[in-house]
Computed example of a mutant assay.
Amino acid sequence: MTDLEIVRVAALTDNYIWLIHDPVADETVVVDPGEATPALAEATRRGWTIGQVWNTHWHDDHTGGNAEVKAATDAIISGPAAEAAKIPTLDVKLAEGDSVRIGSHVAQVIAAPGHTAGHILFHLAGDAVLLAGDTLFAMGCGRLFEGTPEQMFANMQHLATLPDETQVFCAHEYTQSNGRYALVAEPDNSDIVARMRDVDALRAAGEATVPTTIALERATNPFLRAADVQQLAKRRAEKDSFRG
């Protein structure tokens, strides 16, 4: 069980910014600040000082607050080396096999191209925490804006091997729409039916549906469950035009 405090901060339309705090080291990281104001306000409210920014990819709804956070806190900004040209605020360039730290907690960098060409994930294995950006969602995966089905299938295959208890902190509240498609993709999957009852109830109450877990995704995520590249590609294309 991790002693890290991980706080969800709602931003923009449906983004989640994650604040990670190590109470022992009194260090705080903000992950994918699409806008600075809510992240800075929540950190201030809790008496935390942001010292680092971790970016998973270059899209503005994940990096748009970088400059303002840095101006306010002098935080060190780390993100994908392959997208450094698109993230002008970047201080530390990361690639597969690199690591970053918060206090004594180590996050290994996993390359996960697909949604964007240089997307990375942060895996704190010792804490059973995965910061998934826009690669793995609750019952979904990221759109293939710059990558291929082969790349996303490889990502899903890798993430499916993580321990069941791994908590997945994704960057959007997409669960309800993803689940509606999942019911179509796997209409006989009773786990999806049961999960959607919970999701619909949470959303009706105005509650968030993430983080999720690898165990839950392995049971209900049609992209993580895809048998091969062809099935993932078919499901991704269907989801892109799905209006259910």
Results as ranks from 00 to 15, higher is better:
5 E>K: 13
70 K>I: 14
122 F>Q: 05
21 H>A: 06
189 N>P: 11
244 G>C: 04
195 R>D: 03
139 M>V: 02
166 T>Y: 10
103 G>V: 00
17 I>P: 00
48 W>L: 03
200 D>W: 01
42 E>N: 11
89 T>V: 03
137 F>C: 01
159 L>W: 15
138 A>K: 07
123 H>E: 03
37 T>W: 12
113 P>A: 06
79 G>C: 06
201 A>T: 10
179 G>F: 11
16 Y>R: 13
193 V>L: 13
93 K>M: 14
62 H>K: 13
53 V>D: 10
148 T>E: 06
199 V>F: 02
161 T>C: 03
160 A>P: 04
15 N>S: 14
238 E>A: 15
67 A>C: 02
135 T>W: 02
27 E>S: 00
134 D>V: 06
68 E>S: 12
119 H>T: 14
169 F>Y: 15
158 H>A: 09
77 I>D: 11
2 T>A: 07
27 E>I: 00
137 F>N: 02
161 T>R: 13
83 E>D: 09
25 A>L: 00
7 V>A: 11
208 A>E: 10
9 V>C: 05
46 R>A: 08
82 A>N: 02
164 D>R: 05
185 A>Q: 14
57 H>I: 07
222 P>C: 03
163 P>I: 09
232 L>P: 06
66 N>E: 10
178 N>W: 04
59 H>G: 10
204 A>P: 00
28 T>R: 01
178 N>G: 05
99 S>Q: 12
118 G>H: 02
43 A>S: 11
196 M>C: 11
92 V>T: 10
87 I>V: 13
205 A>K: 12
156 M>T: 10
206 G>T: 07
232 L>D: 15
240 D>S: 15
38 P>E: 07
101 R>P: 00
112 A>T: 15
127 D>T: 01
196 M>P: 06
192 I>C: 06
215 A>S: 12
63 T>R: 07
229 V>W: 08
228 D>F: 03
92 V>N: 05
82 A>P: 00
57 H>Y: 08
169 F>R: 08
126 G>I: 04
209 T>Y: 04
12 L>Y: 07
125 A>D: 07
47 G>D: 05
30 V>S: 09
147 G>H: 10
175 T>E: 13
12 L>M: 13
111 A>P: 04
117 A>V: 12
36 A>G: 11
20 I>S: 05
107 A>M: 03
60 D>I: 13
172 H>V: 12
4 L>F: 06
174 Y>I: 06
213 T>F: 01
39 A>P: 02
125 A>P: 01
164 D>Q: 08
12 L>C: 11
117 A>Y: 14
120 I>S: 08
80 P>Q: 09
156 M>S: 08
97 G>W: 04
40 L>D: 12
81 A>S: 12
147 G>N: 09
49 T>C: 01
72 A>K: 11
112 A>Y: 05
227 A>S: 14
154 A>F: 03
52 Q>D: 06
201 A>C: 04
20 I>D: 02
195 R>N: 05
